[in-house]
Design a protein around this nucleic acid. Structure first.
Length: 551
RNA sequence: GUGCCCGUAGCUCAAUGGAUAGAGCAUCAGCCUUCUAAGCUGAGGGUUACAGGUUCGAGUCCUGUCGGGCAUACCA
């Protein structure tokens, strides 16, 4: 809807002989007395034109003319806002687009022909997913969904490492538990994974092999078994939340030589070396980040000869560019906050355009039960598990709670609140609105033979109640909400928006009789209801929550 | 110590640099012989942690102070 105004404002600017590259901002005033839309363009230009905003605004509205029955009033208000008042019939006519576009309402083609990659979760298979990981997972998944609506060809990728030190500790942990299971007395180190799932894996091995592994020193069977079981459980947990990656990138491939005889890791070292950013001392290979103003250099290859996590991280990102992605989105937890800057610096040195990369860092999740905070740690085995959370509150509530807050804020996941099957739970509020419409349409079909699938929106224009106009106008904001979510990588704005739609619908439902109205009015209100249902459905799909037809 | 995030109603949180800072919960007062009351209407509740600055305009941007979280590894 905002786009509607742009050409007219540009036209007025041209007529006034004003050239500017300033972005024309259209906003929806909070207070309706300021019109349906407004622009602050006069403020933005007043300074460089050495005039006052009110005067400029007055001049501009004199140069704007809108088609019949679209904008009914333009006025200058306050210190220089230009406010537009729409013809309600224009709003209702426009709302037909929701019906016409259906499931693709809100879609755009701006990303057409471009590949985007979203990397999220990326937990190493050392244990079951914790609640904290879920937040990044849902955030990444929603961002991928949002990008897909804009025409991007989206890859959802999971990056993992099954070769590092943590996996070694995992294998040893399983072996200790296995030896215990064989009846041998061993001391389980505090540094190792304490969780019960280690015992379960050991039990699996014991059932399959009895105690015949007790004397072998090799760890590979322990590691492979653990990895297989844990990875399967991670993927199962994710799929419960409708998170399904289509690419799993194993860090190990970065160690293997390609066609040119060098590994991606080695290529990074060589390239950085050529630029003079590599030094070798103390038996290690260093990335000279001090040349970039940092306090210390960073180790890329340890004195053991193994790369530190930084090197494959850089090499991994190189592959994202080399695989042809024009948009690269990374979702990290706050604990990895120091990881990305070094990667970005290295990529810049190697000549890659880091502007294509967008990083979303989500803050931590604390869960509270009965007002008490649970601290989490995978190593100590007292983590609150994502699976347990889903068991308790359901997949829809889990997803919604994870994204209903800004990623920059700590999330306080109140399990008691989410568990309550009552109006306190925001997911019910949204879903109830959808179910209510479905029920209404079922009844309309039964009583009047109303065919929702055949509705074209021809009767929308008979609607004149303020709440009806407001609702239709709000529905038309949906495409812009998607763009806003992407601009800030904040799907939470969609939750807020849908909540507002649900609220307006409930109000409309309360104030306006639908099935009891005369035929024309009834049809118009049913059509508006279908529009609402469509926007809710589309929004729910982006957020990955279900749209129940009855509750 | 340094870097990043946060500090907004009793609680959990919103608010592209815009006009009188908004929702939900909780509290209080109303609305079902009427399409789903899992709903709606209304009321109370604020020096946006504090002090400066930038400008037509600051919760938002800049500087500093205080408070909380995270990170500061040859772990990932």
């Amino acid at each position: 809807m905002r786009d509607f105004f742009i050409p007219f404002i540009q036209g007025a600017l041209r007529s006034a002989g004003i050239e500017t590259d300033k972005e024309i901002q259209i906003e929806k005033p909070n207070d309706k007395k300021f019109g349906d839309f407004s622009t602050n363009i006069a403020f933005l230009l007043a300074k460089e034109l050495k005039t006052n905003p009110r005067e400029l605004a007055g001049k501009l509205i004199g140069l704007m003319s809108f088609p019949e029955s679209t904008v009914v009033k333009i006025e200058v208000a306050g210190p220089g806002f230009v406010n537009f008042h729409l013809d309600p019939a224009f709003v209702m006519r426009s709302a037909r687009e929701v019906l016409v576009s259906g499931d693709s309402f809100g879609r755009r083609s701006v990303g057409e022909g471009q590949k985007a990659i979203v990397e999220y979760v990326s937990a190493n298979p050392t244990g079951p997913l914790t609640v904290g990981r879920g937040r990044g997972g849902v955030l990444g998944d929603c961002i991928a969904n949002l990008l897909a609506t804009q025409g991007y060809e989206v890859t959802r990728e999971y990056y993992f490492n099954d070769a590092g030190r943590q996996m070694q500790i995992l294998a040893e942990s399983v072996r200790f538990r296995y030896l215990e299971r064989c009846g041998l007395s061993v001391e389980f180190p505090q540094t190792h994974y304490q969780g019960d799932y280690i015992r379960d894996i050991a039990e699996t091995l014991f059932i399959e092999h009895g105690d015949e592994l007790a004397n072998s020193e090799g760890l590979s069977l322990f590691k492979e078994t653990a990895e297989g079981i844990i990875f399967a459980s991670i993927r199962k947990t994710l799929s419960r939340l409708s998170i399904n990656h289509d690419s799993f990138f194993n860090e190990h491939t970065l160690y293997q030589s390609g066609d040119n005889g060098t590994s991606p890791n080695q290529s990074v070292i060589d390239a950085l070396d050529a630029k003079g950013f590599i030094s070798r001392h103390e038996n290690a290979t260093w990335f000279m980040t001090t040349r970039l103003g940092q306090e210390k250099d960073k180790v890329l290859i340890k004195s053991t000869g193994d790369p530190s996590y930084r090197l494959p991280d850089i090499a991994y990102h190189v592959t994202k560019f080399e695989r042809g992605y024009s948009l690269i989105v990374n979702i990290f937890g706050a604990d990895h906050i120091d990881e990305y800057p070094d990667v970005a610096e290295a990529l810049k040195i190697l000549g890659y355009d880091t502007e294509r990369i967008r990083v979303a860092i989500n803050q931590f999740v604390t869960t509270t039960v009965g007002g008490q905070t649970i601290k989490m740690s995978t190593r100590k085995g007292n983590a609150d598990l994502l699976d347990d959370l889903i068991d308790e509150v359901g997949a829809d509530a889990t997803r919604l709670f994870f994204i209903m807050r800004s990623k920059d804020s700590h999330l306080n996941f109140d399990i008691d609140l989410a568990k309550r099957q009552s109006k306190d739970n925001p997911v019910f509020y949204l879903q109830y609105a959808h179910a209510r419409i479905c029920s209404l349409l079922r009844m309309a079909s039964k009583e009047f033979g109303f065919d929702a699938d055949a509705a074209k929106g021809d009767s929308l224009e008979v609607l004149v109640e303020p709440v009806e106009i407001e609702l239709a106008s709000a529905l038309l904001d949906y495409p812009e909400v998607i763009q806003s979510c992407l601009r800030f990588l904040e799907p939470q704005k969609m939750v807020e928006y849908l909540h507002g739609i649900a609220e307006l619908y409930h109000k409309f439902y309360q104030e306006c009789p639908i099935l009891k109205a005369d035929e024309q009015m009834r049809t118009g209100r049913l059509e508006l209801s279908i529009c609402v249902r469509q926007v809710l459905r589309n929004g729910f799909a982006l957020l990955g929550i279900s749209a129940p037809e009855s509750m």
